[in-house]
């Protein structure tokens, strides 16, 4: 009996959880861990915006127009007397929901297209990938502007535009992984066992290509934040009076000499999640990269 228990313990030592090795490797990357902490902080303040924000995002106060940072208004107020700190917090909500929605849409569509293209090969691959090339040949911002001009600016419109503009990136990553995976013996033996093609694609190929795709997701989230902010900055993004970090930056730029806080704080606010996503993405890429030598 006791020997059996001993063997049991041995097996458990030999086989740590599937995420153990991943965790070890990732946690060695200090910058990535910092990014993850920063992101966690941003997510928490965004979720708790209702409780943290001292004012409403749209409440105007003509007694406190263009006031600098103070105890009452930690980031100052804008030309309508709105509290910039509160607007940044609620602005995060909007920019995060748009970006995450858009990137997830691109992730879903791009991954499906890429996996199918890589697996089937032949004319389907050619057809899908040439379509992707066409989309890729437009700079994503220009493409986004054109699409918005067509469907009109709205919150979910921007998410949709991001979804379309980023689909090719996911399709390419998924396809390249799918092509090499399709030649693996285990995919072949699944076919031999009579497993259906949709099941092979979704249940077997997808989990095996998830690593590189997660890296792409994090990096695209960083770009997504920037693109969303850029669209707002250009006036075709989130429409006033909804708080938008890009638009706040644009509003502040003309009076930066008189009210530096109006553009500085929204600018920093845009920068923080971009840094967080980029550092996490780099960390994940190093972790997932099998060529990386770990000591």
């Amino acid at each position: 009996m006791s020997t059996e228990t001993d063997t049991q313990t041995d097996i458990e030592i030999d086989e740590p959880g599937p995420f153990h090795e991943f965790y070890e490797a990732f946690s060695e990357n200090r910058i990535a861990v910092f990014g993850l902490g920063l992101l966690a902080f941003l997510i928490i303040i965004t979720l708790l915006a209702d409780f943290i924000a001292p004012y409403s995002a749209t409440a105007q106060n003509y007694d406190a127009v263009l006031e600098g940072p103070s105890m009452d208004h930690p980031m100052g107020t804008d030309e309508l007397g709105r509290d910039i700190f509160s607007r940044v917090l609620f602005g995060y909500r909007i920019i995060f929901s748009i970006t995450v929605g858009g990137v997830m849409m691109a992730f879903t569509m791009g991954t499906l297209l890429g996996l199918a293209a890589g697996y089937y090969g032949g004319w389907l691959d050619e057809f899908l990938m040439r379509g992707v090339d066409v989309l890729m040949s437009f700079p994503s911002l220009i493409l986004a502007l054109a699409l918005i001009a067509a469907i009109g600016p709205s919150r979910w419109g921007i998410a949709l535009v991001l979804g379309i503009a980023y689909t090719p990136i996911f399709a390419r990553v998924a396809r390249s992984e799918s092509v090499s995976l399709s030649n693996e013996a285990f995919i072949r033996s699944l076919e031999v066992r009579g497993v259906s093609t949709p099941r092979i694609l979704i249940a077997h190929m997808f989990p095996n290509v998830l690593g590189p795709l997660i890296v792409t997701v994090t990096l695209q989230l960083a770009f997504g934040i920037l693109t969303t902010a850029t669209l707002s900055f250009l006036g075709v993004g989130v429409q006033p009076p909804s708080p938008s970090l890009g638009l706040m930056l644009a509003d502040g730029k003309d009076i930066i000499g008189r009210a530096w806080w109006m553009s500085l704080f929204p600018g920093v606010a845009i920068m923080l999640p971009v840094i967080a996503f980029n550092t996490i993405g780099d960390g994940l890429r190093d972790t997932f990269d099998p060529k990386q030598v770990r000591n």
């Binding site: 285990f186 033996s189 077997h204 095996n208």
Partner: peptide
């Protein structure tokens, strides 16, 4: 070694 799906 390559005939089984590593994730299941």
């Amino acid at each position: 070694n390559a005939s089984l799906d590593p994730v299941y």
